[in-house]
Write a protein that binds this DNA or RNA. Structure first.
Length: 570
RNA sequence: CGGGGUGUAGCGCAGCCUGGUAGCGCAACUGCUUUGGGAGCAGUGGGUCGGGAGUUCGAAUCUCUCCACCCCGACCA
């Protein structure tokens, strides 16, 4: 491809609303343009990158036995009502109606549609298992789209859905998908980790997320220092402390803490550590009432864990100021478990505390030297409520946890029968009995993968594409070609040779200064650069430079193809 | 959803407070010079000043209203 026929649309200045590297670079390099909040057009250069991702995804999905389909973006409300998600889904589901007043939504995902397809097409256990996938645009009306392509409202996703007679078959396909995803992200050249994930509201048995590691990632993930254990912090279990609970050595005492509300304030005021404090959170229960959650002062609540606990309303909802006043007769900041006449759920680490400090249920007062079993009943319900922190023991008993940031680019999970049951997708088994199919689903954020790849691979000059993602493999740059017919002939010849050798070449035949070419090619991240000038031609040499290299290398013209082949296969 | 902010040329911004008919840089276009790290000079084109209403002789500027976009928060016990 020649730049005279393939406009680059690069810009020097960064649009003011771009915050993270990938967003800035995707705009500057001319991969995408914003149309409206969370909506982007893809320019030719960006489309080439998208197609690179899609090709690898297709190849791996196909070789894992999945079958490509294509389903509508606009979906009838009836199907969503059948699954119950028409009501469950909030405003994130974009709804519309047609000219007849019939209701539809823009598909944020396709479980309903695929289940409808499967219940019509699959009648017999002999057709199972089957795994359908598509690569397609989704729409989710995010509260706050941001970070460009990373969290857009419209985005491209590969979604796959598998159907099975039993859980064993589901597990088998799940494992194959796990392997396919590993292959995909490896081939894309990304530094990633599969991690145990929360199954969310959908439930089901197993779930893994695939995270590209990057400091700008929106998710926190926890790894064991010694084992393979890796999990989203939402999911990572905080084990109960193994040390013995301390003795009740202090006496219960009420201390005056005027205007000291937060744990920081209280602990500084009383000159104690946050670990010796207990915070009491009041949340709504499933049946109207209010429930108290107790956490150690230095810990934070894991909402996902909390809302899964029996009795706690999901989604987790904090009690209002009035409710707090009526139950604890004080303002937030002074609540404590002593004398509270509501159900109390205690985090494992809190159950192990002795002589702790907590609110006195009285404005401007806290209690110190509080002990279980003496000042209040022993905890009746002990649960894992908190977020894990760096240094916690690994839940598999092997090593301790380290935390890192990740960008979720893939998610696989075992759905079970949630949709197939609600939508009556069943087959006849070998005994002629009706059996509800069990399902798995597997997603990859195709457009997000590109943003994630840039987050992980860039420098101050621009993008550094992994070879597998690069829109072009080789940039061919002639120096002042317009002044030298001899150079033009040589470059054209080399261009033909590279094409013949199977390279994707971007030949910069614009009449622009060398510095301009270099900057453009570095910005758009072409991994391999070949420069040809009159001087080099005298010696039969071209210059090679990898995008990550610090220096040029002189290569005999006759060896260039060979040299590039070796460089590309690295 | 709550709070804050911004809308002026394709992009980045000034002008607004103190009303007088719109400007700078980059980009684009033309010409000449230049040519190994985003060139120089000269010239050209490009604006419903986010929309609407109002105040005024006169509104980018003041008032009201609507819209769009951006940022922060939605863990506070």
């Amino acid at each position: 491809m020649r730049t005279s026929q393939f406009p680059l649309n690069t810009v020097k200045e960064t649009p003011s609303d771009a915050e993270i590297a990938s967003h800035k670079l995707m705009l500057r390099a001319g991969l995408v343009r914003k149309l409206a909040a969370g909506l982007y057009s893809w320019l030719p250069l960006g489309v080439r990158v998208l197609q690179k991702v899609e090709k690898i995804v297709r190849e791996e999905m196909n070789s894992a036995g999945a079958l490509e389909v294509s389903m509508p973006v606009v979906q009838p409300a009836e199907l969503w009502q059948e699954s119950g998600r028409w009501e469950q889904y909030g405003p994130e589901l974009a709804r519309l109606s047609d000219r007849h007043g019939r209701e539809f939504c823009l598909g944020p995902t396709h479980e309903e549609i695929i289940t409808e397809l499967a219940r019509n097409e699959i009648k017999s256990y002999k057709q199972l298992p089957i795994n359908y996938y598509q690569i397609q645009t989704k729409f989710r009306d995010e509260i706050r789209p941001r970070f460009g392509i990373m969290r857009a409202r419209e985005f491209i996703m590969k979604d796959a859905y598998s159907f099975h007679l039993d859980d064993a078959s589901l597990q088998e396909t799940y494992d194959r998908m796990f392997q396919a995803y590993t292959n995909i992200f490896n081939r894309l050249g990304l530094n990633f980790r599969p991690v145990l994930a929360d199954t969310g509201s959908i439930g089901g048995n197993a779930s893994h997320e695939f995270h590209v590691l990057a400091d700008s990632g929106e998710d926190a993930i926890a790894f064991s220092t010694k084992s393979d254990y890796a999990a989203n912090v939402e999911k990572a279990e905080a084990l109960a402390p193994t040390s013995a609970k301390g003795e009740a050595t202090k006496t219960l005492e009420k201390v005056s803490t005027p205007n000291q509300r937060s744990i920081d304030e209280v602990s500084q005021f009383l000159k104690i550590t946050a670990e010796q404090c207990v915070k009491t959170l009041l949340v709504k229960g499933e049946e109207d009432g209010i429930i108290a959650l107790l956490l150690r002062g230095d810990h934070t609540l894991n909402e996902i864990k909390a809302e899964k606990i029996d009795g706690v309303l999901s989604p987790l909802t904090m009690a209002s100021g009035e409710e707090i006043l009526s139950i604890a007769s004080c303002e937030p900041g002074f609540i404590g478990p002593v004398g509270l006449d509501i159900p109390i759920i205690v985090d494992r680490s809190v159950a192990n505390l002795a002589n702790f400090t907590c609110g006195a249920n009285e404005n401007g007062g806290h209690l110190s030297g509080v002990n279980w079993g003496r000042d209040l009943p022993e905890p009746s319900r002990i649960e894992d409520l908190r977020q894990v922190v760096e240094g916690d023991p690994s839940p598999d008993g092997n090593g301790t946890l380290t935390l890192a940031r990740g960008i979720e680019v893939g998610h696989i999970f075992q759905l079970g029968t949630k949709y197939s049951e609600a939508m009556k997708a069943s087959v006849l088994d070998e005994n002629g009995e009706n059996r509800t199919m069990t399902m798995g689903c597997y997603g990859i954020g195709v457009s997000r993968v590109i943003a994630a790849a840039i987050e992980q691979n860039h420098d101050d000059k621009g993008i550094i594409w992994p070879d597998a993602l690069a829109p072009f493999q080789v940039a061919l740059l002639p120096m002042n070609m317009h002044k030298s017919e001899r150079l033009r002939a040589a470059v054209e010849k080399l261009y033909d040779e590279l094409i013949a050798a199977g390279f994707e070449v971007l030949f910069d035949d614009r009449k622009v200064r060398p510095g301009f070419m270099f900057s453009d090619m570095e910005l758009i991240g072409i991994p391999h650069r070949v420069v040809l000038g009159d001087k080099g031609l005298d010696n039969g040499m071209a210059e090679y430079r990898g995008r990550k290299d610090a220096e040029n290398k002189d290569i005999p013209l006759s060896d260039i193809v060979q040299h590039l082949k070796a460089a590309c296969s690295n």
